[in-house]
């Protein structure tokens, strides 16, 4: 698979380490009332869809950026690549 890095252009997926569902960006609040249950779901439960999946890829052998890749788990086709930083900011998670 070739991942079209927003800054570096097309890169072999081998340069990346797969880090799972992009929902992991939305880390629960550890101080909230139901933190224990929320962290159980966050750590262990997954949607695991057959079809379009947004997922985190870490460019470990490259510029060490984190990407959100939209990929079809049935065909391996990649339709969208974003910087995870931008996605997190749009979710209001970082300055």
């Amino acid at each position: 698979m070739i991942i079209n890095h927003p800054l570096l252009g097309p890169c072999d997926a081998q340069e990346f380490t797969y880090k799972g569902d992009a929902r992991l960006i939305a880390r629960p609040d550890g101080m909230s009332e139901n933190a224990e249950a929320a962290f159980h779901d966050y750590l262990y439960l997954r949607d695991n869809p057959a079809g379009v999946h947004r997922e985190l890829w870490f460019h470990e052998q490259g510029d060490r950026s984190w990407l959100v890749v939209t990929r079809n788990t049935v065909t391996h086709e990649i339709t969208k690549v974003e910087l995870a930083r931008d996605v997190a900011r749009n979710m209001g998670r970082s300055a």
Binding site: G20, D21, D41, L45, R46, D47, N48, P49, A50, T73
Partner: peptide
């Protein structure tokens, strides 16, 4: 498993 159990409204500790 995840696809079938999703029909019962369950999320599993599993990735395919």
């Amino acid at each position: 498993s995840s696809r079938v159990m999703a029909m019962a409204g369950m999320r599993l500790p599993i990735e395919s």
